[in-house]
Every structure is written in C-alpha cells, then in structure tokens.
C-alpha cells in the first residue's frame, strides 16, 4: 500500500507562549482532496505551513511521501536538515496563498518560469513553453506579459496556481485561496482547482467555500482550537455533523 502523502502524528506547534497546534493526527492519501474547515485561529493555516516547513514543528512527527519534514532520522536522534535539502523538498510541494504573493516586479510568465529556471535548472525556452501552456490552462494565455498590478485578483490567483504547478509538485497546499477575492472572481479559481483535482493531484485546501468542499473534497476535516474535531466524507460532516462545535460552526457559515 502506497505511503500516505501527508502523515501527521501528535503534531504540536507553538508561537512564543501561544500553542496553536495541540496534537494533530491526520493522514492524506495520494490523489486525495482534503478540505480543512474551521474558525480563524484554529490552526489550519499553521498546519499547512508546517507541511512545507515554512514553520518548524515543536513536537510530534510530520512526514510527506514517507520522508520526515525538516529533519532526518538517524537511529534514535533527529538531525535538522540543511537549508538546501529543505529547499529541495519544498520544491516538490506547491503552495497557493490567500494574498497570492505574486512577484510584483515580474510579469505573469516570468513569475511562472522563475522557479523552474533557477531552482530546477530547466532550460529557459522549455520553461517558457511550459509556462505559457500552464497559463493557457488556467485561462490566461493573453496575459503572459502583464504585471500582477495589471491583473484582477482572480487572475492573480490563477497565475499563482500556474506558478506552483510549474514545479510539477506531488502535493498542492491551498491556504484560503479564494478568501481575498470578489465573489464573481471566485468561480474561475475554483474551476481551475476542480480541474486539478480531477487530474489526480493530492490537494490540501483550507477554505470557507462549503460548496467547493461538498463538490470536490474526498474528505472534510473540521479543526478547532488546534485539534481535529471531526473528519469524514463531505456529506457526513457537512450534513450530519457529529460534534456540537462542528454544528455550531456550520450553522453560522451555511
């Protein structure tokens, strides 16, 4: 049986004295689409950032595709990974942010080709061709030479998705990808994400879009106060929540 794409066991993370993750146990299978729901402050974004080592975990075990995140196990001891090794592992995980984080001084195409050229050392022409393909796939074939400031929010987020996909990741992390968008623009981004899911990408999506979770997710996870409160199939968690907190949260959102 293939190893879980993401496996978290007893994950703890604190910022100064504030413990944000209080023991997360979660597994994501390859090709699965998992939606993380929960109130703000529940630790959803922090958990995502731990997966690609943007945040260092304090306790527990976290592994991606069978390999520990941020550390190497030598017998009983854990050794911190060197920066270059961390970077290499991060390159295999794509992340899309709430505020897009496009490189403002580069055009859309340059944003998409920057990492393949300088991190994976892909030839410039090849990277440009693939970049143009990816941008066309998210519906932005005519915006290759536009700067982020000239694009709408929805367009920027789609460039961000293409940029993450250009590195051919095995896992995609979405941190509230549509929260900063006008309602009209949300649809285009969700459509791009649906297509990605249909192509078999393993996706971990933190979102407030219940409709998306219902349609696309294989599993929905509800988090609150740094813990997983409940998880299961969308129809079960969204329509028949077992826990009071889940019920309370959904009644406010739905």
């Amino acid at each position: 049986m293939a190893p879980a794409m993401v496996k978290a066991e007893g994950l703890h993370k604190r910022f100064a004295r504030n413990e944000v993750l209080k023991g997360i146990d979660l597994e994501v299978a390859p090709g699965e689409v998992l939606c993380l729901l929960g109130p703000s402050g529940s630790g959803k974004s922090t958990f995502l950032r731990c997966i690609n080592h943007l945040e260092k975990i304090n306790a527990g075990r976290l592994s991606v595709d069978g390999e520990l995140v941020g550390y190497r196990a030598k017998g009983e001891r854990l050794h911190e990974l060197r920066e270059s090794e961390v970077a290499r592992k991060r390159a295999e995980i794509g992340m899309v942010f709430q505020h897009f984080n496009l490189f403002g001084h580069m055009t859309a195409l340059e944003n998409v080709t920057c990492a393949p050229i300088h991190v994976k050392r892909v030839a410039r022409e090849q990277a440009r061709r693939r970049g143009a393909e990816l941008l066309a796939r998210v519906g932005l074939a005519d915006k290759l030479d536009s700067y982020p400031a000239q694009l709408s929010g929805g367009q920027q987020q789609r460039v961000a998705i293409a940029r993450a996909l250009a590195m051919e990741p095995k896992l995609m992390l979405f941190d509230e990808p549509t929260s900063a968008l006008d309602p009209e623009l949300v649809g285009d981004v969700l459509a791009a994400m649906k297509r990605l899911a249909a192509e078999g990408m393993t996706m971990l999506v933190v979102t407030h879009e219940i409709g998306f979770a219902r349609e696309v997710a294989d599993r929905v996870v509800f988090m609150d106060g740094g813990l997983v409160v409940e998880q299961g199939a969308p129809s079960q968690v969204l329509d028949n929540p077992r826990h009071e907190r889940t019920r309370a949260f959904l009644s406010k959102v739905l």
Binding site: S84, F103, A164
Partner: peptide, 18 residues
C-alpha cells in the same frame, strides 16, 4: 518587502540567498 514574497519564494524551493 512583504513577508509573503519570501514565503512564496521559499515554498517554490528557493534558498534564502536566491
């Protein structure tokens, strides 16, 4: 420069120096 820029760069596999 917004911290999100380095977040995005690091998540793409760039080192601190890059």
């Amino acid at each position: 420069v917004d911290a999100g820029q380095s977040d995005a760069a690091h998540s793409l596999g760039m080192t601190r120096l890059q």
